[in-house]
Design a protein around this nucleic acid. Structure first.
Lengths: 223, 223
DNA sequence: GACCAAATATGGTCAGACCATACACCTTTC
DNA sequence: GAAAGGTGTATGGTCTGACCATATTTGGTC
């Protein structure tokens, strides 16, 4: 097993052991390297993987104080994501694909603030002059929401699908004839996110979807 | 933009420009570093990201000849995957992604025949001489199953993910040591599909998954 | 032609160095 | 006393150069 892979495992363990959550920080690269008795290069390679997985986010120049890296999605499935993306043990794409998983993650993320992009998109939709324009910002709105959930890998797949479905969304807006109801939904979602109320948010999203796509089965949909 | 990110972009471009495909090799780390005028560290960090994304796979000790890294999934979505995991935007695919929806659609489609590709893949798996070969046909089998459900868009995405996880699947087969049980599952699925028995099929698929990936959470998976 | 051993370039890892950045702290100013 | 500004400092990002174990190639041997 390569060194950076063991580093990965140890970081994972540390996150679990210390009960780190969103916003918490890992030790600095140098300190981490010293603790794990490996070179900084290996630590960095591990961090790069974690960053790709959407677990951690680095930022330069954090003064003389502590911290170095910031956990962006520390939930328990970290191990699965690692295994999957590294081919260490086994994983299934279905698990990743399951949107329910995403809901759980989103709720577990305990997001207590609405991403600025989300707020901006909300305002932009009010000013939209055409269904196409509306949908553009609508996508941005949901993108921000998904980002708040934290899993970039999953988001990527979802995003690709979304892009492929732009025309559907436009048609949905046209069918409705107006966007008042949709905006009301959006505001409800936004409020829920701001309040950090995961359950309410999921419910709001579900209601929103039911309105936008009436033919949809009452399955638990998400974004 | 960090150096390794530009390296990422340039490698991506190179793959597209040179028309590299599965099995082809990138230049060695040192050579790549020299060509791109960056340090080997940056190249390595970029490669680590690509590895996490399932695009390349490194292996040590390749003698004095050429090659260094090997492309493992060069399909068109590479660019999207790169962009996404680098932190641009993200999105959700809403209802389309929900696997349960797929099951329902599949049932609702009242499929009363097994797709020829499915039958062929089943036979091919019997003749497979290696785990790799087995998995190849295994994928074809499940893709055919997904296609039978009727949602091409969903099929495409699932397929892409599936391809990205080939190595995991191979390992799963290796771990089992034999393919008899898997084939028994496949036959059960095939029979159910032929009979148009959606419920039985879903159940068979679930059982199949549980066998192939024992650690999997009891989430309702689809293949 | 088959087999074995040395030569060689590779990926993996390490140590040490430099830079630009952003935070914490301290001084200055009002 | 509070606000504003300057400075010190540890950080992430990058680079250089080195060593190791490994796998492929090469070339010699039988």
């Amino acid at each position: 097993m390569r060194t950076f892979e063991t580093v990965l495992a140890q970081i994972e363990q540390r996150i679990a052991a210390d009960g780190l959550t969103v916003g918490d920080r890992l030790p600095g690269e140098r300190q981490l390297a010293e603790q794990l008795r490996v070179s900084r290069s290996s630590v960095r390679e591990a961090l790069r993987v974690l960053e790709t997985l959407g677990v951690v986010s680095s930022q330069v120049g954090r003064g003389p104080d502590a911290g170095a890296v910031l956990i962006s999605r520390p939930d328990g499935t970290l191990a699965d994501l690692l295994r999957l993306n590294l081919g260490l043990t086994t994983m299934s794409a279905r698990e990743v694909l399951d949107t329910r998983l995403m809901i759980e993650r989103w709720s577990a993320a305990r997001v207590t603030w609405a991403p600025p992009a989300m707020t901006e998109a909300l305002a932009a939709m009010d000013l939209a002059a055409s269904p196409e324009e509306f949908v553009t910002h609508d996508i941005a709105f949901h993108v921000a929401l998904t980002d708040a959930a934290g899993n970039r890998l999953l988001s990527a797949v979802l995003r690709a699908l979304r892009d492929a479905l732009v025309s559907n969304a436009v048609e949905a807006v046209r069918r409705l004839g107006h966007t008042d109801d949709l905006q009301a939904d959006h505001r409800r979602i936004h409020t829920a996110v701001e309040a950090g109320d995961g359950e309410e948010a999921v419910e709001a999203v579900t209601a929103h979807l039911a309105r936008a796509y009436p033919g949809l089965s009452p399955i638990q949909n998400v974004f």
